[in-house]
Amino acid sequence: MEYIIIIISAIFVNNIVLAQFLGICPFIGVSNKISTSLGMGGAVLFVITLATIVTWLVQMYVLKPLGIEFLQTIAFILIIAGLVQMVEIILKKVSPTLYSALGVFLPLITTNCAVLGLAILTIQKDYNLMEGVVFAIANSVGFSFALIIFAGIREQLDLMEVPAGMKGVPIALVTAGILALAFMGFTGLV
């Protein structure tokens, strides 16, 4: 039951993009087409889940026993940067098809604040490892969900006539605002 609450809350109520403002750069940047959104969503799911597990273990078994929790930010970002690089190398060797699908998105993910944000949030919320994993997966699904809906809207938006000043990012942001408004309807679900 707890897991179901975590999942529903992460995907709908506290959607990572539309309510918590994490990972906006890829949300605005790569959401032009549904296919690229799917690729980005897959890469994010992969990296976030892995990063949450590793950072959780490091926090519990390295930083906490040594009493150096203030190094959290530095340690986590290094772990994430290393992890992304490693995933890239392994994926290239093991599964070239998956690599060609996700490859271009991997370097972008290091500076995706959703990854570091979720790693820190998992620690702040005092989740255990299992809850942390569920939380990470649910949030990545929420991220892909928002990205794909938004890409669908933007594909239509390209066909519309938009005032010159609003073209590009401004109209995308206003659209995202309206989408966020729709997601606010889920408030109170859990």
Binding site: L18, G165, M166, P170, L173, V174, G177, M184
Partner: peptide, 22 residues
């Protein structure tokens, strides 16, 4: 009140960007 909540952030930034562009 919506402007303090999440949707308002997107909408306000969108318009602010359009004004700067202009």
């Amino acid at each position: 009140l919506v402007f303090i909540l999440a949707p308002g952030a997107f909408i306000a930034l969108g318009y602010l960007m359009a004004i700067t562009k202009r």
